[in-house]
Amino acid sequence: MTTLTHLQRLEAESIHIIREVAATCDNPVMLYSIGKDSSVMLHLAMKAFYPSKLPFPVMHVDTTWKFREMIAFREKFVAENNLDLIVHINQDGIDMGMGPFSHGSAVHTDVMKTQGLKQALDKYGFDAAFGGARRDEEKSRAKERIFSFRSAQHRWDPKNQRPELWNIYNNRIQKGESMRVFPLSNWTELDIWQYIHLENIPIVPLYFAKKRPVVERDGMLIMVDDDRMPLLDGEVPEMKMVRFRTLGCYPLTGAVESTALTLTDIIQEMLLTKTSERQGRAIDKDAHASMEQKKQEGYF
């Protein structure tokens, strides 16, 4: 008998997790951030239920500040794969004129992303939400369960997690409480890229290098994606060969200079780079243990 490769094992484990949710939760949803991890997670879900279509909807919590190319990709992907997509935007935030330039990254992310997500979960009464987080991303994530319990206030209590043994997952909850489920927990960044490569999974073109208009601000290269971005005195967008290692709100996501035009170029660059993945995201730098705190408050 052939033994399974590392990636085949990870794939089987993720499919098992995704099926378990479909079989035992009343009203699950898969969160879709349009990033590479989300794309892998969706691909695995389609595999899990083939030939059926996904037995749950896919939801994007849109902050209205995503790269335009992300939204275009989302629309195309959803149409091609016959997915039920819910797009949720925090209307309260829109009414307040929320944005990263006017309110700062922390407030913007909290209102449009964290509060937006909680709002959407409450609105649709989802009892389980899949997220694409990986344990190798960040220290508090390394400690989180695959089925991660959230109180009715969407809070995570890291000191009181349920023991989780074998592949037997306890998803029992009371009304109002919910589960966040992370099928990619045991994947590394390299695994994700390698799987995208082997399975030909489409990803947003922003991951590949291209000449794009950027300005340098606080040590980060920010792409001028639309005219909502106010330029400071002396700032002139420059066309540079850049790409993005992670995707999010364009004013908060730093580009890296790169010549990587193909997937193998990207992988090669990633392996030779010595900065870990989340450094491109402004949000983690705020405070110590900041991700743990955000997660306790309901951030994914």
Binding site: E138, K139, S140, R141, K143, K159, A289, E292
Partner: peptide
């Protein structure tokens, strides 16, 4: 030791 409580107490909890 990734959790804030762990770093404070210098022990591994989870």
């Amino acid at each position: 030791d990734g959790l804030a409580a762990e770093r404070e107490q210098g022990i591994t909890i989870d």
